[in-house]
Amino acid sequence: MDVPGSDALLPAVLRNRPSFVLLRLAALSRQHCADQLSSVGISQHQHGILCCLQEYGPACQRDIAARLSIDSGDLVAFVDGLQKDELITRQRDERDRRRQILSLTPAGARMLRHIEDLLDASEPGPLEVLPEDQRQEFLAAATLVLAHHAPDTWGEPADRSGVPVPAR
């Protein structure tokens, strides 16, 4: 029996393997987000840096690199671009001249609000095929798994408004 498009169909063993499915979904989601951010000339790592500075205040480059799991050497290029666009400032720490302290500028805060509006408008992105209740369940389940494996970085699982999700 000839199935239309069957030459491109992934093997069933892969389509039924959760790790493979999640990797493909992550790639799809990452590309969707990258497309939105590229429209304002920001990378996903740069967005993460702006988010850190907005939420936690001025911080040294090394701390931001560790928080976002970005190699500190790679972080420099992302920071250079943000500084060039006057979205952040970078200054030597007076107490330890080896450290660079990053701060969000007012222009950076405005850009971050614009980015968040842009991302909010593009949600639910690849998950649009799911009804809202299933999207919320998926988010809660994914967050629960991530919080279980990395509680230091994910904290307690919470809904989008920050309300903790009870363990099941």
Rank of each mutant, 00 (worst) to 15 (best):
L119I: 11
F138R: 11
E116D: 15
R110D: 15
L82D: 00
G108C: 00
P124E: 06
L112G: 11
E86G: 04
L82T: 00
D93L: 09
D117G: 03
Q100D: 11
I115R: 03
M111G: 06
S122I: 04
L102V: 08
L82R: 00
P124D: 04
A109F: 06
R98I: 07
R92T: 15
I101D: 05
D96T: 06
P131G: 01
G108M: 00
Q134H: 13
I115T: 03
I88R: 03
Q91Y: 05
P124W: 03
I101P: 01
E94G: 07
D85S: 10
E128Y: 07
R113I: 08
E128L: 12
L112V: 12
R135K: 02
A121W: 08
D80Y: 02
L102D: 02
Q83F: 08
D133H: 02
E123H: 05
D133S: 01
T105W: 04
T89M: 01
L82H: 00
D117L: 04
L87G: 03
L139M: 08
M111C: 15
R90M: 10
R110C: 11
A107C: 09
V129M: 14
R90Q: 12
F78I: 07
L130F: 14
Q136M: 06
G108R: 00
T89K: 01
H114V: 12
Q136W: 05
P126N: 04
R90V: 14
E132V: 09
E128I: 14
A142D: 01
D80Q: 06
S122Q: 05
S122A: 15
E132D: 08
L104A: 14
R97L: 12
A109N: 15
L118Q: 04
L102M: 09
I88V: 15
I115N: 02
E137W: 07
A141T: 10
D96R: 10
E94P: 12
E137C: 06
A121R: 11
E137K: 10
Q100P: 03
L139A: 11
I115V: 13
A141L: 12
D85H: 09
D93Q: 10
I115W: 01
Q136R: 10
E94D: 13
L82A: 00
R135L: 00
E86N: 09
A141E: 10
S103V: 09
Q83A: 15
Q91F: 07
K84N: 06
T105I: 08
Q134M: 13
Q100M: 10
L87N: 04
E137N: 07
